[in-house]
């Protein structure tokens, strides 16, 4: 099915077009969302929201960018919204447990590693990497995740983020520098720990 036929099919809510959309695009949407939210269950739920959003707003899609780019944009926005909501929820939960005088353990699914890690050390390293990536400024984080996890080219990221290729290069370079520094610091702590 061509992109044009798919869009027309989605506009008329054609069953085949909807099935084609789900079959060909959902997995990518889940993976991208997963790289952002770090929880497969949440990523799957988000992918359904993204597909419903596509169906709701396909009539307003202006074809200025490719359908794939447009879907990436919706996915990134939905994932970031989810993270913001989760952050707010975590703050309230922390506050609540503080007011109740209970000792708060790690709150929120985000801190619980979802990958089936084998060792405690792997879990620890994954947590460190997630914290380091999540501490990046939003634009750097988006560009870095799309490049490093989704393996998109600078040109594709530039289209998704509506920025120039040179801006994307600079964002990714700065993100890597910051991550390197953070990981070196973590390593110093880690090295102290194993001494």
């Amino acid at each position: 099915m061509t992109e044009h036929a798919l869009i027309d099919g989605l506009i008329t809510q054609n069953k085949d077009a909807i099935q084609y959309l789900v079959h060909h695009y959902q997995k990518n949407v889940i993976k991208t969302a997963y790289y952002f939210v770090d929880n497969m269950q949440d990523a799957e739920d988000l992918s359904q929201d993204v597909l419903l959003e596509i169906l709701r707003s396909i009539g307003r899609y202006k074809k200025e960018s490719s359908l794939n780019t447009w879907i990436y944009r919706i996915t990134v926005n939905k994932s970031l919204d989810h993270l913001r909501r989760q952050k707010r929820r975590n703050i309230f939960q922390t506050l609540e447990s503080f007011l109740q005088g209970t000792t708060h353990e790690k709150i929120g699914k985000n801190l619980e590693p979802s990958v089936t890690d084998t060792t405690h050390e792997d879990k620890e390293k994954k947590k460190i990497l997630d914290i380091a990536v999540n501490s990046l400024p939003e634009n750097q984080r988006i560009a870095f995740i799309l490049n490093k996890y989704d393996e998109l080219t600078y040109k594709e990221i530039a289209e998704i983020m509506n920025l120039s290729i040179s801006s994307i290069e600079s964002l990714i370079h700065r993100a890597k520098m910051k991550l390197q520094n953070k990981l070196v610091n973590y390593f110093s702590e880690y090295a102290k720990g194993i001494k």
Partner: peptide, 27 residues
């Protein structure tokens, strides 16, 4: 290097195989 392997591990995580059917039902 060991940290970088996590990038690869995360890339290889797969979603639930029944998600497609569930999504079509929801739509």
């Amino acid at each position: 290097k060991s940290i970088s392997k996590i990038f690869e591990a995360k890339r290889s995580d797969e979603p639930n195989p029944f998600i497609e059917t569930r999504t079509i039902q929801r739509i």
